[in-house]
Structure formats: structure tokens, C-alpha cells
Amino acid sequence: MVHGRRERVAKCPHCATPHPYTEVKFTAVNDKGWWGLDCCSCSKRFVIQVMNPDESGAAYHIAERHDGAYEGDPAILATAIVQHNLKMNEVRHRFDYGAKPLYVCGEVGENLEQAARAALLAAAGDIQAAYGSAITHCLASNRVPEYEHVVAHVDVPCTCGAGHRATFYAKFAWDGEPQPVDEFLLADVSGADLPETLDGLFSKDEAMSFLHKLAIRWHLTVDRILVTVPFVGHQYLKAAQKLNAWQAVLSLLDPRKSAFVTRSASFTSYKKVLEEVDGLDHRLLAEYGLENKLVAANLRKQDFHAKFYAGMSDTGCEVFSGSANLLKGPSLENMSFRAQSMASFKVKYLDRLGVALPEVEPRCAYFALIRQSEDGRWTCLQQQGSRIAA
């Protein structure tokens, strides 16, 4: 029986490139062993001593797995190894249905978020069954693409009489353990007027809540997310409060598809409070590849005071902008939202910003869509294209 899993990182003895891996520990007998692998950077062979070499694992290819003590060339043995429980790049999304609603009926102004959640939960059993069948099929077949997401379309009633369609999603459960339907995230409700809802004066709390909901939306619907602010928090916050402000936004953004632009002093402040509050040296974290990747990208700009947040795709962009920095509080900020073409966004924002954004991998072209057919049955089918389209 597995007693636990230890997250470790070993540096290549040739080039010091960090290689993360998971070491499995059993409650009873544990076997000593070692791996032989080719460095992900310099391609030279090196060795990691690892407990239970057959059951332990890594995201990269392991060329050799051996039981017993390693007795080969000590020069190729990894000796710079750390064990950790850090999750500096973990994305933690939670849709707050109690906060000011983002999705409001454009006709009658009705809050559509609570109604969408009620409709989702009413169909939870049928959706879970369709999802489970899809997972079973995908795990048994080698002819389906590795979806990133499962998407559920749910009809939402409204006093406007027209009705709406909500789009919920979750990471597709390739581990065979589907998430409960009540953990699916709300990414859109048709018929909501976002430009109208997001235009006006809002408290910092409300602006941050809207940003959180937009980040959830954009992680499904766009290719890249851009956060551009000169400051995170403000200079009068205590160190723990500054770190909380940073962690609140960093936990919303997947570094694989996001970019964060701020002033040099803001990045320096983050590293300072990280060490002061949590005792973590950012430089040492970077040596082992454990640092936050958005901070490590170091996308700096000094001469700006603009604050805007954007979801970008070739097919179009959504921009939330105004006076609000990344900070909670009761004071009022002016904010607005608009959709525009990528060409327009490039000219009006990216070219003016003048910061080269790193390349990102393209989104998976396919996803699994759960929806109710005309005969009332809930099915899960492979789809290609926009996640929002009904």
C-alpha cells in the first residue's frame, strides 16, 4: 500500500538543469534503486537514485529503471536534490456565486449565475453519468485526442422568456476520477451583456471579483491571458498582505497561457515578501525550477500607469480595463469592458505597450461536450472549435 508520494527535484550533474520527479513510498517494504535518463536540456545521460524505481515516476522519459544500489560512475550521479511540497504555479479557481454577478440578462437585468448553477445541479446525475461514460471510452481507446477540458451546456430559464445557455467546464479527468459536477466552473451564459455589466464605478472588491470570473472564463475560451499593471497592492500594506495580494492573482493564472507585465520594483517587492513571510529565497527556487513562472518571465515595463486585463485569441479579444490595481478594498474604481479584433488590440494595446510576449503552445483543438439532445438524453461527444458555441 502506498504510504505517500514525495515531490523531488534533481539537478543534472552536467548542466544543472532541474528535473522534477515523484518518489513513491510504501507502508511496508521499500526498494532502493536508480534511474538512468537523458537530460531534458543537454541530452547527456545521468543517474538519479530513487526509492521504488518502478513505481516512482516523472513527466519525462526514463531510459533505465534498476533495483539495488547504483555502483557506476559517480560523476554522472545527481547529488543536488531537494524535496518540497511547494505549488508555486498551481491554478486555483473557484467561481464565487455570492459576489456581484458578471452574467446578467441583457433584457431584464436578472442574475443568471444562480439560475445557471441551479440548472447544473438539477442535471448533475445525468451529466455525471455522461461524463463517466466518456472517460471510460477515452481511457479504453487510443484514437481520441487528449482533451484538456470537458464542457457542459445547460439551459437556463429567465423571466425574459427567451432563455439562456450556460457553459460550464472542468479539466478532463484522464486519471479516471471525474470531478463532481458542482465543481465545474461557469465560463459563459448566452444573452449576458458583459460590456453593460462591466461599465461603471465599482469597489476594488467588486473589480477583483469580476477579474477572477473573467480569468475563469478566459482559461477556457482564449489562447492567452495578459495582465498588465504597474503595482500589486500598495506600499502601505504589511508584508503578509502584499504576499496575499500577489498570491491571489498568481493562483488565477496558468503560466502556460498567461503573461504578467509590471514594473521591476513590483517583481522585486514580491521576491522580498516571499522570503520575509514564507522564508523562500526566489533565487534558490529558480535554481530548482520551483519558482513562479510568471514572475520568472520577468516581463517588465517602467514607464506606464495603465491597468488592463485581456483574453486574447486570433478570433478576437476581450479587454477589462480601468483604474483598479490588483488589490481588494472598498474604495471606488472606474472600469469598462469591450470585445475587439486581435488586429485592433495589437495596434491599440500591444504595440503601444512595447513588451515582447513569450510564445505559448496552441490550445487543444478538441474538447468533450456534454449536452442534452432533443429526445432528452444527455450525451458526451467530441467537439472541435469554440467552447462557447452552443
Results as ranks from 00 to 15, higher is better:
Tyr70Leu: 08
Tyr70Lys: 09
Glu71Met: 05
Glu71His: 12
Glu71Arg: 14
Glu71Trp: 00
Gly72Gln: 03
Gly72Leu: 02
Gly72Tyr: 01
Asp73Leu: 04
Asp73Arg: 06
Asp73Gln: 05
Pro74Met: 05
Pro74Lys: 05
Pro74Glu: 13
Ala75His: 06
Ile76His: 00
Ile76Gly: 00
Ile76Asn: 00
Leu77Thr: 00
Leu77Lys: 01
Leu77Asn: 01
Ala78Lys: 00
Thr79Cys: 08
Ala80Asn: 12
Ile81Val: 15
Ile81Gln: 01
Ile81His: 01
Val82Lys: 11
Val82Cys: 13
Gln83Lys: 12
Gln83Pro: 01
Gln83Ala: 13
Gln83Asp: 09
His84Phe: 13
His84Leu: 13
His84Ala: 11
Asn85Phe: 03
Asn85Cys: 03
Asn85His: 14
Asn85Tyr: 02
Asn85Asp: 13
Leu86Thr: 10
Leu86Trp: 14
Leu86Ser: 09
Lys87Phe: 11
Asn89Gly: 10
Asn89Pro: 07
Asn89Ala: 10
Glu90Thr: 08
Glu90Trp: 02
Glu90Arg: 15
Val91Ser: 06
Val91Cys: 07
Val91Tyr: 04
Val91Pro: 03
Val91Ala: 07
Val91Asp: 04
Arg92His: 07
Arg92Ser: 14
Arg92Asp: 11
Arg92Asn: 11
Arg94Tyr: 04
Arg94Val: 08
Arg94Ser: 11
Arg94Asp: 07
Arg94Phe: 05
Phe95Lys: 11
Phe95Ala: 08
Phe95Gln: 09
Phe95Cys: 07
Asp96Asn: 15
Asp96Arg: 14
Asp96Gln: 11
Asp96Ser: 13
Tyr97Trp: 12
Tyr97Pro: 02
Gly98Thr: 10
Gly98Ser: 12
Gly98Leu: 14
Lys100Met: 11
Lys100Ile: 04
Pro101Gly: 02
Pro101Ser: 03
Pro101Gln: 04
Pro101Asn: 04
Pro101Phe: 02
Leu102Ser: 00
Leu102Tyr: 00
Tyr103Thr: 02
Tyr103Leu: 14
Tyr103Asn: 12
Tyr103Arg: 08
Val104Leu: 12
Val104Thr: 09
Val104Pro: 03
Val104Asp: 04
Val104Tyr: 07
Val104Lys: 08
Cys105Tyr: 07
Val108Ser: 14
Val108Gln: 15
Gly109Arg: 13
Gly109Ile: 11
Gly109Val: 11
Gly109Asp: 09
Glu110Tyr: 13
Glu110Met: 14
Asn111Gly: 06
Asn111His: 14
Asn111Met: 09
Leu112Ser: 02
Leu112Arg: 02
Glu113Pro: 07
Glu113Lys: 12
Glu113Gln: 14
Gln114Ala: 15
Ala115Leu: 15
Arg117Gly: 03
Ala118Trp: 00
Ala118Tyr: 00
Ala118Ile: 01
Ala119Lys: 12
Ala119Cys: 10
Leu120Val: 05
Leu120Pro: 03
